[in-house]
Structures are given as C-alpha cells and as structure tokens.
Computed example of a mutant assay.
Amino acid sequence: MLRAVLAIVVVAGLLAAGVAGTISALNRTVYSAGGFVEQYLDALARGDTVGALALGGVMPGTADLAAWGLTNEVAKDLPETLLRASVLGGLDNIELASTTDTLATDDGTAQTVVFDFDLNGTASSMVFTVERAGTFGGVFNAWAFSTSPLAVLQVSVLHERSFTVNGLTLDTRAHSAADAPATFSTSAAYLAFAPNRYTFEHESAMLTAEKATVRATVAGPTAVEVNALPNEAMVGQVQSELNKFLDDCATQTVLQPTSCPWGITIDDRIESTPAWSITAYPTVALTPGELSFEMGATPGQAHIVVDVQSLFDGDVSTRDEDVPFTMGLSVVVQPSGALAIQLH
C-alpha cells in the first residue's frame, strides 16, 4: 500500500513538473513578448484586421498621440478609414530578430522587440515596445503594446482634395467641418497599419499625380505628399478655350477690340473695316500658384489688315501688319470637374 502511494506521489510530481515546464516553455515562446508581437504581424499578413485591432494597445491612446506631437485638432477623431484589409499586402517572411528588456512602466516587465520581414519583396524591420498586462488562465503571460504600432499618415494633397491609396479613393475634406472654407490644396491625417506599404496617386479628368510610395515601418506620423498637376487634357482644354476667346476677339471690326489683349492706334483716316486674325496663339503652360494654376504673361500675335488715308497728303494705303501682345490666365478645377478660367 505504501509503495502504491509513493508511486502516485511520484507520478503526480512528474506530471506537475511537466505541466510547469510546459507553462514555462509557452511563456517563453507563444506567450512571450515576441510571441505577442508575432500575433499582430501574422494577423496583418493574413489581412485579419479584426484580430490585429483586438490586441492590447494597438489603438493609440492619448499618451501616444501626445508623444507623436500631434495637435489636438489632428488627434481628435483620427479617421480609421485605412484600418481595413483591402489596403494590406506584401508582408511575409516574418522573423523575430531580438527581444531586449527595458525599464518597467508598471509592476510588470517591458520589452523592446524587433522583427525582420519582407515588405513587398524588400527586406525591412520594425521596432515594437510591449509590456506585461497581467496573466490569463492564472499562469500564462499577457502582453500589450506600450506604444501603439499604428502609423498616422499625414497626407497633403496639393492642388486637389482627393487621392487614391492602395486602390482606395479618399477625399481629404470628408472629415472636415461642413462650413470649412474651400482651399486650393488640402490635407488630412489617417490611422494606418504598420508595417505596410502605401502607394498614393491621383488621376482625374484634369489632374494627374505621380505615384508616391511610403513604407510605414515606424509607429506614429509619416508625411506623404500627393502633387496633382495639370495633365494633357487640362492643358489642351485651356488652350482650346483661350484660342476660342482670341478668335472671338478677332471678329471685332474695330482697332481696339473690347476686353481683348491687343489693339492698335492709327492717326490716319480709316477707309475700310479693320480685319483681325491670329497668327500666333500664346502657348499654354500651367504652373501651381497659391490659389490656382497660372499661365504667366505669354506672347501671342494678332494681324490686322485695314485701308487708311493719310491726313498729310491724302494717299490711301493698306496697313497689313502683325500686332504682338501678351496675356496670362488663372485656372481652377471646380468640384464639378469644370474649369474656371480667369484671363489677365
């Protein structure tokens, strides 16, 4: 009987030691700081945004926003539009590089964790800070991010209000106050997953922006600029409207066409109806200004044919000559997509 009891005690001790060893092993791997961060990265790689956001400390708190230097205006109600699976992709070959103990922020331990990975085929890495968040099941370590791993993409869209990022088209003014004044260039900030690669662009009927790629591998603010500039269609339309305006001016049968950029003064008597034509249209080239796209003073050339009689000797002759002129203009793309052209 004693031998049987001793056997049971020995088996129980072995089982307890095995369980303790298993728990210890799990706390060093699956439930370690590195294991916690790997859960986050694996969720991003799978496009599991719900799982990623459910992890402790992923969403930035007030302390994170303040540490990132964001103004109250920017930090207030940061859009979560980009926290979606459709903009994720290209994260693989995830490997733990290092885990380093850091000073505790509370009564638990804090660690700095570095992971290496490939981001759309390019070797990259990211640093994460995590801290103990108690236990679960009474035995397994729980962790949370002490600094949110999310990025804040601060997008400036020059000369436009909309842009496309990873196939998703957004309007920077979607979260602005209803009475916010219209501006030539706009900006907005968005919460976004990191690590991830974001490609920004703009393509509309009148404006085109070259692609700008941002590799978000650091938590907090990352600035990106989308420079929307007039494309061939816009320049062509402005040129067509300008030419039409000048052609209409040329139909006026006076020496000084009204509201037109040229005219001629003749001291002799006019003996025929002045006939104007355009021999060289100003070539439209648009550059961004503070409030609109601008064409600076650009040369053009009109031509006049008119018979005149000299007041000196009465001779009649034909004035057949070129009349050079210069003109400029300003252009704004209206919300409807139509062009508002102001000549000057």
Rank of each mutant, 00 (worst) to 15 (best):
N231F: 10
A233S: 14
G236H: 11
Q237T: 07
Q239E: 09
E241T: 03
E241K: 09
E241V: 00
L242V: 01
K244C: 00
F245G: 00
F245V: 01
F245P: 00
C249H: 02
C249F: 03
Q256S: 04
P257F: 07
P257S: 06
T258I: 15
C260S: 07
W262Q: 06
T265L: 04
T265G: 09
I266D: 02
D267L: 11
I270M: 06
S272F: 13
S272L: 11
T273F: 09
W276I: 14
W276D: 02
S277M: 10
S277C: 04
I278P: 07
T279P: 04
T279V: 10
A280P: 08
A280F: 11
Y281E: 11
P282Q: 13
T283P: 01
V284K: 12
A285S: 13
L286Q: 15
L286F: 03
G289R: 13
G289E: 15
F293K: 07
M295W: 12
M295V: 00
A297P: 09
P299R: 13
G300M: 07
G300R: 12
G300Y: 06
Q301P: 13
H303A: 12
V305D: 05
V305I: 11
V306D: 05
D307K: 12
V308N: 05
V308Q: 06
Q309V: 01
Q309F: 02
S310W: 06
S310Y: 05
L311T: 06
L311H: 02
L311D: 08
L311S: 08
